[in-house]
Every structure is written in structure tokens, then in C-alpha cells.
Amino acid sequence: MTANEYGFDTLAIHAGQEPDPRTGAVVPPIYQTSTYAQDAVGAPRLGYEYSRSSNPTRDALQECLAAIEAGRRGLAFASGLAAEDTLLRTVCRPGDHVVIPNDAYGGTFRLFSKVAERWGLDWTAVPLDDLDAVRAAFRPGHTRLIWAETPTNPLLNIADIPALAGLAHEYDAMLAVDNTFASPYLQQPLALGADVVIHSTTKYIGGHSDVVGGALITADAGLGDELAFHQNAMGGVNGPFDAWLTLRGIKTLGVRMDRHCDNAERIAGYLSEHKAVAQVLYPGLESHPGHEIAAKQMSRFGGMVSFRAAGGPEKAVEICNRAKLFVLAESLGGVESLIEHPGQMTHLSAAGSALEVPADLVRLSVGIETVDDLLADLEQALG
């Protein structure tokens, strides 16, 4: 099944998930096995030998991921960072250079600064919404990747995917886009010129805060084959039950994202008029500097809202601690609403660096609860 044949929600429910041919089971089985009987030496059944290399449940997930991102190959991993690490070690070599956002996710920054740098990968952090700055950061012959997030975590900045793709390809580099915040339902970077899409499937794709996973989806089958080799060689795959949970989450991705967006739009509007809020960061607001680009490359603006507390860092922490319905927790993209202080939680690894986030910043992952209940909780938390 491909995006050319069917709509998004149909693909999410059916791609890679045909009824089991033996029993007729409508939901793909969980193949909870590590190894497979072979018919003869060197003759595995349907190519299955060992579940690190391939597993029918994971294969179903990977086919579905490729379909909903309109890609040629989908690969599933044990976490988003396992996917990121596999991508870097596949396409980069010691001495190569990568351009990253100057407000990248803290875990991504840690991967570059504390892990990849040690084996010889260099990187430069620039605002990706400034194409002149991106071009100036390029090192012809050495820059292998532009690594983009859009919207970014947690400042919700917007990068122009087609423009970055054009710039990367001009220098014979690749564009990798972390599409976690938008989800494939709201944005499809491969169709806009990106070479690889990255996901923490823990977030919106899984959608229920009950599984950790990651994914890579490629536009080119050859690159997909290279990544698949490294996926097996490095071994950072997810187990069959995790793959099954993620596949279950995908089935409702479209309807969940519609509610996430509905609620986030209401909350962003409410916060923008509250005296305890100094600034709201949400690309759906016309005041957002990336609003026009987001409107071109996203169907809607997502369920993540960040804001800066008018009372400074102490007030931001107080708001997080006072929230009740918004659960004080890291991660995002689940059906329940979460609140966090990025500076002391998800982005602590960037403290003291050029990527340090503002200390007065609060990040909301807006869930799918009754929006009036969420607004009431924010009202009491803001004081």
C-alpha cells in the first residue's frame, strides 16, 4: 500500500497489517521469538533467521511507517536516539561535519557533543530559519548532513524544509528531518525534499506513553538498504511487543492529532492573553516568526505549546509544580497532557552551552482531554 493509492488514515490502519494468512487474525500477531526453524542449512523460511535481523511484527511496523511518511524504506529502533545514532554512523565518517539547530533537542545535542564528537564527527549549531547562517556554516567537501527539527524542541522554531533540502543538495549533502513534533499526519518532509525522516515513535506515533521506540524513513531505497545493514549490525532494534504497541498507536494517529491540534490552538490563544505569560511559542499564532512557512508545509500546527513566564525562572518552576491535570513529566505526544521545565528536565544536558534554553520556559504537551478542564488547570497553575 502506498500514499498514491490510499489516504493517510487508511494507510495507518492497513499498511503492513493484512489479516494473518493462517488464522485470519485482523491484528498482526506478536511474534515473540528470538529465532526461527529453518527448512535446511541456509534455507530460512521467508528469510527469517534471528529476530535482531528481522521479525514479522517489526516488519509490519516498518512497512506502515514507510507508507505513512510516503517513503521507500522504514526502519524501527529501540529508541529515537538509537535511530539517530544509526543514521550518523551510516552516513558520516570521522572528519565529516554536520549542521544542527541551535535549539536542538537536548538528547540530540548530547549525542553530537558527548558521543559522535569523540569518534571524529564535527558539528556546528546555527539557527536553521536563517538560510544565510546555514550556508555560512557549510564546509564544502566535509559537511555531510543538515540535521533539522521542525518544529524544534522546545522553542518551536520552524525550518523551511524545501529550502534546506535545496541547500544541502547543492553541496552534495543530505537533509535529515526530525519530524517527531509534527508527526507524519501533519507534515511529510520526504515529499518536501528531505532525504531521511527521524522519529521518536515514543511520542505521537505511539501516542499512549507506554512504549519507547524510534524510526528512520528514507526517500531512497539504496540508503534504506545501507541503514538496514547498520540496524542489524549495531543491533538497536525494538522488540516485537514494542513494535506491536507502536503499530497499534499508529492506527489512531490521525484522529488523535486532530484533537491535539484543536486543544493546543485553544490553549495557545488563552496563554497569549494571560498576564502571567510573557511570550507564547506556537507556530499556529500569526505572531510566530515561522507561521507562514509552517502554514505551507504543515496541515496544522501540532499539539506542543511553550511559553515564557512573566515572573521569570522561579515563576516557571512554580507553574509546573502547581499544575494538577497537566502531569509534571518528561516526554510528550501521549493522550494525557504533560507539563515540564525544559531547563531542568529534558534539556538539562544543554545547560551551560550555546544551546541552553531560557530558564523561564515552560513546555506543554497538550493531550486530548476536555479542553475546558485543561484551561481551568492552567488558570489555577498560573495563579
Results as ranks from 00 to 15, higher is better:
A15C: 12
A15V: 02
Q17W: 05
Q17L: 08
E18A: 15
P19R: 06
P19A: 11
P19H: 10
D20E: 15
D20P: 10
P21C: 03
P21Y: 02
R22W: 04
R22E: 14
T23W: 02
T23N: 08
G24D: 02
A25W: 01
V26T: 10
V26C: 07
V26N: 02
V26R: 13
V26P: 00
V26Y: 02
V27P: 00
P28I: 02
P28E: 01
P29C: 05
P29F: 03
P29H: 14
I30C: 12
I30F: 02
I30V: 15
Y31C: 15
Y31F: 14
Q32P: 05
T33V: 15
T33F: 14
S34T: 14
T35W: 11
T35E: 15
T35F: 10
T35M: 12
Y36W: 14
Y36D: 11
Y36H: 07
A37C: 12
A37S: 10
Q38D: 11
Q38R: 14
A40H: 03
A43W: 01
A43I: 07
P44K: 08
R45Y: 12
L46E: 13
L46Y: 12
L46N: 12
L46P: 05
G47C: 10
E49S: 11
Y50F: 09
S51G: 07
R52H: 12
S53T: 14
S53Y: 13
S54F: 05
S54Q: 11
N55H: 08
N55F: 05
N55K: 02
N55G: 06
P56V: 00
R58T: 13
R58W: 08
D59F: 00
A60E: 04
L61D: 05
L61E: 09
C64A: 12
C64E: 10
L65Q: 03
L65N: 10
L65F: 04
A66P: 07
A66V: 04
A66C: 11
A67Y: 01
I68A: 00
E69Y: 15
E69N: 15
A70S: 13
A70R: 13
A70H: 09
A70F: 04
R73G: 01
G74F: 02
G74A: 00
L75T: 10
L75H: 09
L75P: 13
A76P: 09
A78F: 09
A78G: 13
G80R: 00
G80I: 09
L81I: 15
L81N: 00
L81G: 00
L81E: 03
A82Y: 04
A83P: 07
A83M: 01
A83C: 04
E84R: 09
D85P: 04
T86S: 12
T86Y: 03
T86M: 01
T86A: 12
L87N: 01
L88M: 13
R89S: 08
R89F: 01
R89Y: 02
R89L: 10
T90W: 07
T90Q: 08
T90L: 12
T90N: 08
V91W: 03
C92I: 05
C92L: 11
C92K: 01
R93S: 11
